[in-house]
């Protein structure tokens, strides 16, 4: 078996040594950020409106009527280049066929 040659005590011992030297990853996961995340998450357990971020009367943006303009993505997807043209199938005809079938 291939793995038998690979997993020796040395590999595990090496991994153990490594885990004692290194600190938990990741650089992007600053402790402060996670704390904020925790606070926000904790707030979810109650009514979200309890955080005072809105009053029940002032929620016009939730009203579905006449909000077609809201159906256009205005976020970072445009900058990232992730719009559909980035994923164009080499065989557009088949993709269209699949879409119709689905």
């Amino acid at each position: 078996m291939i793995a038998t040659a690979v997993i020796g005590a040395a590999v595990v011992a090496g991994a153990v040594t490594m885990s004692m030297v290194k600190t938990p990853s990741m650089e992007t996961e600053a402790p402060g950020k996670e704390q904020c995340y925790g606070v926000a998450k904790a707030g979810e357990n109650g009514c979200a409106s309890a955080n005072g971020s809105h009053t029940c009367g002032g929620l016009a943006t939730i009203d579905k009527s006449g909000q077609e303009w809201m159906l256009v993505e205005t976020g970072t997807c445009l900058k990232m280049g992730g719009q559909m043209e980035a994923f164009e199938d080499p065989k557009p005809a088949e993709a269209a066929k699949a879409a119709r079938a689905g």
Partner: peptide, 12 residues
Amino acid sequence: TRRVVGEQFFAN
């Protein structure tokens, strides 16, 4: 997800 599509789109 919200940031990718934008706040208004996400709310909808």
